[in-house]
Simulated scan of single mutants.
Amino acid sequence: MNPIVTVQDAVTAFADWNEPTDAELDAIETEMPVILADIDLLDAHIATLDRTPTEMDQRRIRRARRRALAARVELINHTVTASGVGA
């Protein structure tokens, strides 16, 4: 007779190894403004997929694009300052 092994035993056997490290969580937290700005930009584009963009839609896209670029610049400046590059 063959014993039946559940799939959960195989999956949870490696659960401790699949958790993100503190450094990875810190990196995600640092990049979160960029991620959220990109989501806003995608939302603005998605809203205009099925119609011709109005002037208000175009403004929303431009604002979202500026916020995404500003978030990227802020992240790069933070990264350069934290690493001490150029000092």
Score class of each variant (00 low, 15 high):
Asp43Cys: 00
Gly86Thr: 15
Ile61Cys: 12
Met56Val: 12
Ala23Gly: 00
Leu41Trp: 03
Arg65His: 10
Val34His: 05
Thr54Glu: 06
Ala27Arg: 13
Leu49Ser: 14
Met56Ala: 13
Ser83Trp: 03
Ile46Asn: 02
Gln8Phe: 10
Arg65Asp: 07
Gln58Asp: 14
Asp9Thr: 09
Ala68Gly: 08
Ala64Asp: 07
Asp40Glu: 14
Arg67Phe: 09
Ile35Met: 15
Glu74Gln: 13
Leu36Gly: 07
Asp50Trp: 09
Ala15Tyr: 02
Gly84Tyr: 06
Ala13Trp: 02
Ile39Met: 04
Ile61Glu: 14
Thr12Arg: 06
Ala10Glu: 01
Arg67Asp: 15
Thr54Arg: 07
Ala10Gln: 02
Ala82His: 08
Ile39Pro: 01
Thr30Gln: 02
Arg62Glu: 15
Glu29Arg: 11
Thr54Gln: 04
Arg60Cys: 00
Leu41Met: 07
Ala37Tyr: 01
Ala47Met: 11
Arg62Thr: 00
Asp40Leu: 05
Ser83Asn: 06
Met1Phe: 06
Asp16Val: 09
Thr30Asp: 00
Val73Trp: 08
Leu49Tyr: 12
Thr54Asp: 12
Val80Met: 06
Gln8Ser: 13
Ile28Asp: 04
Arg51Pro: 02
Leu25Cys: 02
Glu19Pro: 00
Asp26Lys: 09
Ala37Lys: 02
Ile4Leu: 05
Ala23Gln: 11
Arg63Asn: 14
Gln58Thr: 03
Pro33Lys: 07
Gln58His: 09
Asp16Arg: 10
Leu69Gly: 11
Ser83Cys: 06
Ala47Phe: 11
Thr30Cys: 00
Leu75Asp: 05
Pro20Cys: 02
Ala47Ile: 15
Ala27Phe: 11
Ile61His: 12
Val7His: 02
Trp17Gln: 09
Val11Met: 05
Thr12Val: 09
Asn18Asp: 08
Thr79Leu: 00
Glu19Asn: 12
Arg67Gln: 15
His78Arg: 13
Glu24Met: 10
Leu42Ala: 13
Thr54Gly: 08
Leu42Asn: 08
Thr21Lys: 08
Arg67Leu: 12
Ala70Asp: 15
Arg62Gly: 10
Thr21Cys: 04
Arg72Thr: 15
Thr12Cys: 06
Ala13Gln: 09
Glu29Ser: 14
Arg51Asp: 07
Pro3Val: 14
Asp57Phe: 12
Leu25Val: 08
His78Asn: 10
Thr12Ala: 05
Asp9Lys: 03
Ala27Asn: 05
Leu75Cys: 04
His45Val: 06
His45Trp: 10
Asp38Thr: 07
Ala87Trp: 09
Gln8Asn: 12
Arg51Ile: 07
Arg63Gly: 03
Gln58Tyr: 04
Glu24Trp: 11
Arg67Trp: 05
Ala71Val: 03
Ile35Trp: 13
Ala15Ile: 12
Gln8Ala: 13
Ala23Lys: 10
Leu36Asp: 14
Ala44Cys: 04
Met32His: 05
Met32Glu: 10
Trp17Pro: 04
Glu31Asn: 05
Leu36Pro: 03
Arg63Ser: 11
